[in-house]
């Protein structure tokens, strides 16, 4: 079969599968959004019912590490986007950009681990009250999703081979990409709500 043909033509079948896969992914992202929205609802309640924030004389979390995390995850979204473009064009450089994304995802996790150990070194532990509870639990939950998404990136390694059929692999790339960008957006919202304000 002529791979060039299959990579460029949009048959009815191919579009149908794309739409099906994107409907399912939309539902999945709605469910994850509801999960994080519920957590943020909890945060909002505690934040609004407390006269001072952070309560109990806690100091705000130093913004240095979370800011670096935000920058890393933002760039990783960009590198994934670049990889996706090059994958559709069956360009050889796609290897590089997927590699960047993996490296950035890994460094994001390192930053998170450093944040937790930094808090511990300042004597702030998860059981010390509602403020550390929120900081730790929310970042844990998000980090757990990032770890899963990071392993999902390895599921994209077959897309780096020579002579692939874009049609067969495109939905995998689109879906994992959407999840990766979604986690970036969630982190940005968490950065603004629980760290900045």
């Amino acid at each position: 079969m002529n791979t060039v043909m299959s990579n460029t033509t949009l048959t009815k079948e191919r579009v149908g599968r794309q739409i099906t896969s994107s409907i399912a992914m939309t539902v999945i992202l709605v469910t994850f959004s509801m999960l994080f929205a519920s957590l943020l609802l909890g945060f909002t309640v505690f934040r609004l019912t407390s006269d001072v924030w952070p309560p109990m004389g806690f100091e705000r979390v130093d913004l240095f590490l979370p800011t670096i995390s935000t920058i890393l995850i933002a760039i990783s979204s960009f590198t994934f986007w670049k990889y996706e473009k090059l994958f559709l064009a069956v360009n050889k450089e796609r290897k590089l950009w997927l590699g960047f994304t993996m490296a950035l995802g890994f460094s994001f996790m390192v930053m998170q681990a450093m944040l937790w150990s930094d808090l511990h070194s300042k004597g702030i532990y998860v059981q010390d009250g509602i403020f550390p509870s929120i900081i730790f639990s929310f970042t844990w939950t998000h980090a757990a999703h990032v770890v899963v998404a990071w392993f999902l990136l390895f599921y994209l390694v077959p897309t780096l081979k020579e002579g692939i059929s874009v049609e067969k692999l495109e939905n995998r790339v689109f879906n994992i990409g959407k999840f990766w960008h979604f986690l970036g957006v969630v982190w940005l919202i968490m950065y603004i709500t629980i760290f900045l304000f």
Binding site: G42, F46, T49, S50, D51, V52, P55, M56, V126, Q127, D128, G129, I130, F131, S133, F136, S137
Partner: peptide
């Protein structure tokens, strides 16, 4: 963690 423990966030954390 202390999400559902009774008490006021501001005073008892």
């Amino acid at each position: 963690t202390a999400f559902f423990l009774a008490g006021a966030a501001a005073t008892s954390g």
